[in-house]
């Protein structure tokens, strides 16, 4: 048995729409190793949700293969090993939270004796411990999202597939969620999630895949993607003309920034002082995931 939790090869899907067709996936490849936390990012309409639905068997691909824990995507065996958070958080709104969760646990095959305690822990994990008896319709959007996460966790599956994990969650909940993900990861659970919150992806993911126009454009660890060589960013205030060879870029409010190799930091600082500039900060140069995404998307659109 392979150590891949998700294995997607050459996946293609074209939707039929009113005006013709809409290509959602154009040969998508993905590999997620067991135990990884994998962040799946891409602009709106990139095909994230489509590929996730294919993994669950909600949508049938036109061609290509997708394996979930070694089972064909969409098979009952595959779904038994998987917890899913749908993109749009809608649940049977007339049901009480605990009541619905117990039914979900039953459908997922949790034994009758464990069900109630499992549901309670799941609800407590997402911070709904005090609202177990409320009906779903009485929940706010964020609470529904939390319920969705509980619902994905309830059967304690070895793989979690979470679509738009943080949508609608407040900053504190997002922080708590990060901790939850890390604790799940410690227990060896594979987590595959799509998100538009880059800071979250940056902090919790072992591996990141960037999808655009139905194809994976980049994949790797955060280090790989951000390619942080040993560079240093120096923020300073002062004359720019004399320092033109260091290629200063304007930063916020009259500040300038130059990036140099770590080894050349002292020399650069001396040059700035000589030119009469005042140093504000010296810090490791950092690219953000946003920048990478932006770059890939513009490159993709130009191509």
């Amino acid at each position: 048995m392979s150590d891949l939790a998700l294995e997607v090869r050459e996946l293609r899907k074209t939707y039929k729409t009113v005006g013709g067709t809409q290509e959602a996936l154009r040969g998508l490849d993905l590999s997620v190793r067991k135990g990884q936390v994998y962040g799946y990012v891409g602009p709106n309409g990139a095909g994230k949700s489509t590929s996730i639905k294919i993994l669950l068997g909600l949508v049938r691909p036109d061609s290509g293969t997708a394996l979930v824990m070694g089972h064909p995507a969409g098979s009952v065996e595959a779904r038994r090993l998987l917890g899913y958070l749908p993109e749009v958080a809608v649940y049977h709104e007339f049901m009480g939270a605990e009541e619905l969760l117990v039914l979900h646990a039953a459908l997922a095959g949790v034994s009758a004796s464990d069900r109630l305690s499992r549901c309670r822990t799941a609800l407590e994990m997402v911070g709904l411990g005090s609202r177990m008896k409320s009906r779903i319709r009485e929940f706010s959007k964020g609470m529904k999202q939390r319920f969705g996460i509980a619902q994905a966790l309830v059967a304690d599956p070895p793989l979690l597939v979470l679509d738009e994990l943080t949508s609608g969650l407040d900053p504190i909940a997002q922080l708590e969620l990060k901790e939850l993900i890390l604790s799940l990861k410690e227990r060896g659970i594979t987590i595959f999630f799509s998100s538009h919150m880059m800071s979250e992806v940056e902090t919790v993911c072992d591996s990141i895949g960037i999808i655009h126009q139905g194809k994976l454009r980049a994949e790797g660890t955060l280090q790989d993607l951000l390619s942080i060589e040993n560079r240093v960013a120096i923020h300073f205030r002062g004359p720019t003309d004399e320092l033109a060879e260091l290629n200063p870029q304007p930063a916020k409010a009259g500040e300038q920034v130059i990036t140099v190799e770590q080894a050349g930091t002292d020399a650069a600082l001396d040059r700035i002082r000589q030119a009469g500039g005042s140093i504000l900060t010296v810090a490791p140069a950092k690219r953000h995931l946003e920048d990478v995404l932006h770059q890939l998307v513009t490159a993709g659109e130009a191509a």
Binding site: G57, L58, E77, Y84, H92, G109
Partner: peptide, 9 residues
């Protein structure tokens, strides 16, 4: 509401 249900085995 179908999605979470059909995601079950």
């Amino acid at each position: 509401t179908l999605y979470p249900l059909l995601a079950r085995p």
